[in-house]
Design a protein around this nucleic acid. Structure first.
Lengths: 353, 353
DNA sequence: CTGAAAGCGCTTACAG
DNA sequence: CTGAAAGCGCTTACAG
């Protein structure tokens, strides 16, 4: 049973048991309508040869589908997307399907490659956290396989979508900063091609409008995808002649980068001589130690993945039902998950602002 | 091009182009030895029908292998394992292979199911973070497919293994606590079935021996797999009549749980009236804000994954070379990655201990 | 340059 | 209850 050795085939099992391949197939399928004596002989041959059925060949012949769901995210290192993947697995595990994983690093070309590879490998459907490009998401490119977009939408792509209430979450968190008396707010977010980034910026801008506070565009920084990039951006903002008095980080990686920069820059609990206003989108570990209050826009990433997975299963099962009938036009659905502001960090001491 | 529609086959392309399936196959394979005129006609039919080759069927016939590597980890939510997965992807991406993902939740039964499923789906090899059970890791169960164990070893399982230098890392970090003057050390770790847990405990115990400090077994707590469990365990330790004066957290999840508990329990920078001694295995975000020094045993999880992936590729390519020759007995390899102590958190103020 | 035949490993549909 | 034939979608090996 060394590595180079070929796996035994059903035919070899049949020869050893002295029956036809058909009979072996029947025994493996559950042994109905097979005599006990023959069944035993087959099972003995199976265990002697260490035979394991080739699922791929089995599925090819019986047209059962690959049992594969392609999940493409931008970066599995971001705990947010790891949660999304987990959620998709929660949703599909019971159906016997498994996840084929791809990462895109927010690169449209890599995303196109991953999608094409998924399609070639016969995934039954795809859950994608899109980078924003859309050419490779046309129905033709997907060969008719259902696509669910998770976290972000792509204009012009017709697909079921699970969104987080980015606009309202950001709006509310930004208003909270104004209520605390902050006025010069910085925004740290993803690239503009990413819809969450735009939607969260939208909430940020709407709040400025509502509060009658002008936006200082020099404090809006987009494009940081990693903790390191976000940390540098934040340090850059802190070094400004007129630095911001508050910060809104539009996602987990930007939040950690921002806080790391503030930690390096602070004197006791002050940054540039004051308590910085803080709001972030996405939870993060160890908020308990941050010595300032933080408005956190909480939402359930795992549930985003679960819902995306369920939407996909929905289409797949509908497809099965519709094999003989006319497939009904199923309308596209967009689910928007709530995002609510909670407070983390150290509660403000009275009179400290 | 709606969801229910069947994908076109090579045969249909051939009919449309008025050629044999063989010719279509040739064109798709690169178009060598095909006339320009025929090639064009085929390509036109391909794009008109939106044909995409079925990679699964192609691989079945040409015996090229599935191009799939099964990666089974305990919990993708733990950023440590997310990094391992990323590392494996780094290593295999260039070879055109892709990751089939499974999670086991440290459950040996689920691990066995995942492995069997991987084998049935014809993965070329498996990278596994093992739960500790071994029945399903026998060569027969793997149908001769190469297995690489990542992070943890399993006694009695013959497989290439990538380990972290758990014993020395823990030993060194524990000694650092003794040097700071701490004497009642608590240990928070994984289940005993997990080899990292045992190895890290071993380093912890060895350090006690070297320092001539007796171990208080009531302070050794194993079995917490999540942040929540670890937090509860830590709170339990803190509520002891004689609480520990220092803590060693044997992995990322235990570290975050421990620190969260300490954050809740502290008064200013003190816990039970003193600065707690802290050592943890695995890095974590936002250590900058922890108001105490922490000895962190650093190691590169992504590199663990990369090396595991490379070891697997090594065996797969060796297997190809050896198709005609005698496959040489390749010895099993165990790579041990360094783990070194670095200091994080807030540096100790002189005379504060 | 092009194609008819056979087969990868399995299962469906049909006979007996 | 058991098996010979055909085929899932593709490619190899062989003819022409």
């Amino acid at each position: 049973m060394t590595a180079g050795q070929k796996s035994p085939t059903l035919k070899q099992v049949a020869e050893r048991a002295g029956v036809s391949p058909m009979t072996v197939s029947r025994v493996l399928a559950g042994g109905h309508h097979v005599s006990a004596e023959v069944s035993e002989r087959v099972l003995a041959a199976v265990s002697e040869l260490g035979y394991r059925r080739n699922d791929v060949a089995s599925r090819l012949r019986s047209q059962r589908g690959s049992g594969l769901v392609g999940v493409a995210i931008t970066n599995i290192d971001n705990p947010y997307y790891a949660q999304v993947v987990l959620g998709v697995e929660d949703a599909i595990r019971a159906s016997g399907r498994r996840i084929l994983l791809g990462t895109t690093a927010e690169d449209p070309e890599r995303e196109a490659t991953v999608v094409a590879d998924f399609v070639g490998r016969q995934v039954e459907g795809i859950v994608l956290v899109p980078s924003g490009a859309r050419a490779h998401l046309r129905p033709a490119a997907l060969a008719g396989r259902p696509l669910v977009l998770a976290s972000r939408a792509v204009p012009g792509v017709r697909a079921d979508t699970v969104l987080v209430d980015d606009v309202n979450g950001s709006h509310e968190a930004t208003l909270a900063l104004f209520e605390q008396g902050y006025r010069r707010l910085a925004f740290l977010g993803n690239a503009e091609s990413v819809s969450t980034s735009s939607r969260r910026l939208e909430g940020f801008l709407l709040a400025h409008e509502d509060a009658g506070v002008p936006v200082d565009q020099t404090l809006v920084r987009r494009g940081a995808h990693s903790v390191e990039q976000a940390c540098e951006t934040a340090l850059d903002l802190l070094a400004l002649p007129q630095p911001p008095d508050a910060f809104f980080a539009a996602n987990n990686r930007n939040a950690v980068g921002l806080l790391t920069a503030l930690a390096r820059h602070r004197t006791d609990d002050l940054v540039n001589g004051a308590v910085p206003g803080l709001a972030v989108f996405d939870q993060f570990d160890l908020a308990e130690f941050v010595p300032w209050p933080i408005a956190v826009v909480e939402h359930d990433a795992r549930e985003v993945g679960r819902i995306a997975g369920r939407m996909l299963l929905d289409r797949l099962e509908r497809g099965e039902d519709a094999r003989d009938h006319e497939p009904p036009e199923v309308p596209l659905r967009t689910v928007q998950m709530p995002a609510q502001v909670v407070w983390a960090g150290t509660p403000r001491l009275p009179g400290k602002v």
